[in-house]
Design a binder for these strands. Sequence first.
DNA 1: TGCTTGCTTGGAGTGCACTTCAACGTTCTA
DNA 2: TAGAACGTTGAAGTGCACTCCAAGCAAGCA
Lengths: 150, 150
Amino acid sequence: METTPAPSKADVCASGPTAHPRPDGQDHYTISEVVAVTGLTAHTLRWYERIGLMPHIDRSHTGQRRYSNRDLDWLAFVGKLRLTGMPVAHMVRYAELVRVGEDTFEERRELLESTRRDVLSRIAELQDTLSVLDFKIDFYAGARRASERA
Amino acid sequence: METTPAPSKADVCASGPTAHPRPDGQDHYTISEVVAVTGLTAHTLRWYERIGLMPHIDRSHTGQRRYSNRDLDWLAFVGKLRLTGMPVAHMVRYAELVRVGEDTFEERRELLESTRRDVLSRIAELQDTLSVLDFKIDFYAGARRASERA
DNA sequence: TGCTTGCTTGGAGTGCACTTCAACGTTCTA
DNA sequence: TAGAACGTTGAAGTGCACTCCAAGCAAGCA
């Protein structure tokens, strides 16, 4: 599987500054440190790399992965995309576009806007289910009150 | 797999009256009619029955399924639960509670309230991702405008 | 020097929610 | 009466997103 190069600052920064566990320059996290920070498993981190969802990850002189602050930012963004329900294949597509460079800004925007539309309709769908749930919950709560009165 | 008995009116009615394709008394839908109404596949309908998510479905004299308006209502409700993201195993649990009867109102209410909480937090999560998406979309849109000016 | 802990790999396994298959029976239309 | 269309079953297969396994290497420590 291909890996993406380290994305540029603008590609990675999410909304607002995020504090990193270590300052730039000393940011050489082992996989288990990344596990602690992200909540992902080491398996998943290696799998992300294998499917091309991660940029190239630095290695120590013994071949162990050393993640950077930038990798952490990318993982945080991927985490957000995951929460949207975006399929991993689409995230990989996005990672490929980042790898290619600035010429793909437009396609990246389209990808995110389509995801945005999906999120909005999913929210609407969920709000729709809420009224059904509330109706039923009220029914059961009403039945309980009635049996307490009896 | 066990099947549930026909749930009582109160167990099934969703929010508001739903028009049925045929009036009560003439409601003997074939599986393909139910496919057309619900959008589920025939496979899925049979699978739902096998795992205990459906009440007992009437059969014609030749053994073919004949669904009733009540079955359609139940399927509509199951569809709503599916949209909430509730796992099928929980829906089966709910169906079991319906089968047992009115003694399970309280547990059913708890199940739905827990689902409701899940839905609310999922909505919040999605709204959170929206701000990240918007931030990135704005960045790419801004880059486009900048390049058009250049 | 051995032991434990952490990391590496490719490949196989898991759980969910269907989905397809094979083989066959029934019903409808020409 | 032929043939298409629709229905039946149990079992196996699919796609997704991980998740686990076996076997082995490397570093730190009693």
